[in-house]
Structures are given as structure tokens and as C-alpha cells.
Design a protein around this nucleic acid. Structure first.
Lengths: 146, 146
DNA sequence: TCCGACACTCTCTTTCAAGTAACTATAGCA
DNA sequence: TGCTATAGTTACTTGAAAGAGAGTGTCGGA
């Protein structure tokens, strides 16, 4: 698939305008689908946490990374890192020494994704209590209604 | 729609500062955990697609919404909408007529989340081909290595 | 009388993502 | 000789999410 073949600069500009306003409306729906697929891959728990950690810490070794990302198993860490590497979000540098030394850091792509997610992060941080309240209200109503 | 009702200028400024730098690092780690939980809930495929659709279309009825969000089952649509309602992202208005008429639209919270995600959306749109290339490269190397 | 529209709701089945825990290779060290 | 550290595999198990598809209630219209 040649993803962005017919995705013009004008369309990207439009996307940017929308981003500052609200709706990413009438773009080619095929692009929408591709984007959704990409977001689906990239927006999982561990990817986001690794992204965050590497954005904060810079370069990290495997074990150190696993310490920062609390609760992750070696398996999940390897798996997620491999996927991120495949998608061009991280680079892994292998030093051929023993015991092995492998360092991970974000690429430009990864860094930019990190700051894109920052908007969501900020939203979440600022609206945590709104959401909390909404939930209580909702649950209260549900209980009252039953 | 009075989206930005209780979103102060100060908060917006703070958000912008966070977004332009990189790490939302040094906040209370408990907040980090909560935020991650919230993002985990909010960042799933259907939620994002519904968010997008409602941001574009404004107010929609159940069946119409299910037409826009391609591939979603009634079950998933109901389930996702209930969760979004619970989190204060959508409001559902029930008109007590027969046949039933229920309309869904985003709240201010939902709209703001939508535009927060927009950054990710734009990232995805702009970097689809980078990711595609990275994958081909990676898969090529993997094949060559094996 | 039966159908269709609408917005669900329920059950059943399958799938797949994620966790656990043990195993690998290698060199230096005691 | 066995132990440790490092960066992973591999096999097995489990739980939760998702899809399919039928059922529900109500009313107006043919």
C-alpha cells in the first residue's frame, strides 16, 4: 500500500486547521481507515508507557526500562519494543559485549508521536476529576433508576 | 455547543506549555497512574471512531451512528456509548415517542478530548508512509537475517 | 393480523491478548 | 564447580473482549 500517494499538502494543511479547531471531517475515508489502523496499533497501554518513559529518560537499557515501566513482563516489553522498532518509533543499539548490552531510544518519529499524545495526556490530567464526577453521577442515577 | 465552558484561559495556557515541551514528567506519579488508566479506557478503537463521527456530524441517532461507524455491531455501539456517557463524553437525549428516538452528541469534555486526539490523528496522517517504510525496512532486514 | 421501524438486550461461541514461569547463551568471578 | 548478570525465548494457561444472531416492546399502518 502506498499510503499517502493521494494525500496532498493541502489536505495536510486542512488536517492541521481542523486539529486546532475541531473536526477532521471530510478527508478521504480510506485515509481515515489507515489512520485508525495505525492509531489502533500505537495506542495501547504498554506502547504509551514506553513512549512516555523513553521521552522522559532518553536512552535506556532493557532491564532499566523494565524497572521504569512498572508491571510489564519481559515478554511484553520485548514484544512491544519489537513492534515499536518495526514501526520506526524506537532504535535499539546492540553492543556486542557480554553480558549483553542493548540500548533503546526514541526516533524523531517516536518523539513526535510522544508530543502528539501529550495533548491527550494533558486532557486526561486536567479532566480526571470531571470524568470522576461524571461517573459518580452516572452510577448514582443508574442506582436510583433501578 | 458551549464546549469550553469551564476550561479557563490559565488551564489552556498550561496545556499549551505541556504540549509544546515534551515530558509531562514530574507530576505526582499517582496522577500518572490514573491518567494511564483513563487513557487506556478512552483510547480504544470504537471510542475513537465514535468520537470522530460525533465531532464531525454533531447530533446523531443510534441507527444513523451505526451507519457512520462502519463495522460496529449494535452490541459494541451500545456498550461503547454507555461507557462514554458514563465518562461524561457524550449526552444521550431520549425522546419518549414510539418508535423510540434517542440522540447522541458530544459534551464539552468529549469535544475537547476529540481535539486532543486530533494531534495524534494528524501525526498518523502525516507519518503513515514513514511507518510503512520503516516496516518494510524492518521486515526486509528480518528476512535477510534469518 | 402481521409487518416494520427503532433502540436496544441477551446468550453463546470464539478468539486473542496477556500473564507466568521456566529456559537459553556467554563470560567473569569466587 | 557453580553463581551472577543480561537480554531475551518458549510453552502453557487464563481471562476478557468481541462477534453473531436471535429476542424484546411498542405503535401505526396495510
Amino acid at each position: 500500500m502506498r499510503a499517502l500517494a493521494n494525500f496532498t499538502t493541502a489536505e495536510i494543511e486542512r488536517a492541521k486547521r481542523y486539529a486546532s479547531a475541531i473536526p477532521p471531517a471530510d478527508l478521504d475515508p480510506r485515509i481515515g481507515a489507515l489512520v485508525n489502523e495505525l492509531i489502533g496499533r500505537v495506542a495501547d497501554k504498554w506502547t504509551m508507557m514506553i513512549l512516555e518513559t523513553l521521552a522522559e529518560q532518553g536512552e535506556l537499557r532493557f532491564t532499566r526500562l523494565s524497572e521504569f515501566v512498572k508491571g510489564i513482563s519481559q515478554k511484553m516489553l520485548t514484544q512491544t519494543l519489537r513492534n515499536m522498532e518495526r514501526d520506526g518509533l524506537v532504535i535499539c543499539t546492540v553492543h556486542p559485549v557480554v553480558p549483553p548490552k542493548v540500548e533503546y531510544r526514541l526516533t524523531g518519529l517516536g518523539l513526535r508521536l510522544g508530543s502528539a499524545f501529550c495533548g491527550v495526556w494533558v486532557w486526561a490530567a486536567e479532566n480526571l476529576d470531571h470524568v470522576e464526577k461524571a461517573r459518580q453521577l452516572f452510577d448514582g442515577k443508574a442506582k436510583a433508576g433501578s
